[in-house]
Lab assay of single mutants.
Amino acid sequence: AEKTGIVNVSSSLNVREGASTSSKVIGSLSGNTKVTIVGEEGAFYKIEYKGSHGYVAKEYIKDIKDE
């Protein structure tokens, strides 16, 4: 049951290796980017990222929809 969301930041949002603010940053997404959410862990969504997965803070994702 995948969902999509939109990155809701003015600059960019860090994509992390794990569901923690201390996890390594593996990339970033600019505002209004559409993401595919494959799961959630605590305050983070697990998303599809560059052929693999990454984690982003839930508070910066809006317009969550079921695909």
Rank of each mutant, 00 (worst) to 15 (best):
E41I: 07
Y49Q: 01
Y60P: 02
A57M: 13
S52I: 12
Y45A: 02
S52T: 09
S52V: 12
S28T: 13
G18Y: 11
S22C: 06
S23L: 03
G54S: 02
K24C: 05
F44W: 11
K62A: 14
N8P: 03
S23M: 07
K65L: 13
T36K: 10
V35E: 00
N8E: 09
S28I: 09
A1S: 14
H53V: 06
S12G: 09
K58D: 01
S10C: 06
Y60W: 09
Y49H: 08
T33K: 07
G27L: 03
Y60G: 15
G18E: 14
I6K: 05
T4P: 06
N14T: 09
E40W: 08
A43C: 05
I47F: 02
G51H: 10
H53Y: 11
S23D: 05
E41A: 06
V9N: 07
S12L: 12
G39I: 03
I61S: 01
E2Y: 11
K3H: 14
T36R: 11
S30I: 15
L29D: 00
Y49L: 03
S23F: 10
Y55K: 00
K3S: 13
E59M: 09
S23K: 04
T21E: 13
V35Q: 01
V15G: 00
K58I: 10
K65S: 12
K34F: 09
V35Y: 02
V25P: 07
G18M: 15
T4Y: 12
K34S: 05
A43I: 09
E2L: 15
G31D: 12
T4K: 05
G51L: 06
N14Y: 12
S28L: 11
K50C: 07
A1E: 07
N14W: 13
S10T: 14
T36H: 14
A19L: 05
E48D: 07
V56C: 04
N14I: 10
E59C: 06
V25D: 04
T36P: 04
G54A: 11
V15I: 12
E17W: 06
S12C: 05
K24T: 11
K24I: 13
G5K: 01
I26A: 02
E2N: 09
D66A: 09
I6R: 05
V7F: 02
G31C: 05
K24M: 12
V9I: 10
K58N: 03
G31V: 14
H53P: 06
R16W: 13
V38W: 10
I37S: 00
V9F: 07
K34A: 10
S12V: 10
E48W: 09
V15F: 02
V9E: 11
I37P: 01
L13T: 12
S23N: 04
D66G: 11
K24Y: 07
V9G: 12
S30Q: 07
E40L: 09
R16S: 10
E67K: 03
A57C: 06
I6E: 04
F44D: 03
G5Q: 03
V9S: 05
H53I: 07
I47E: 00
E17Y: 08
S52M: 14
D63R: 10
I6L: 11
S28A: 10
G54E: 00
G39R: 05
A57D: 12
I64A: 08
Y45K: 01
I61F: 03
E41H: 08
G27P: 00
E59W: 05
V25H: 06
G51P: 09
F44A: 03
I61P: 01
L13I: 09
E17G: 10
K34Q: 11
I26P: 00
A19I: 06
K34L: 12
S22N: 15
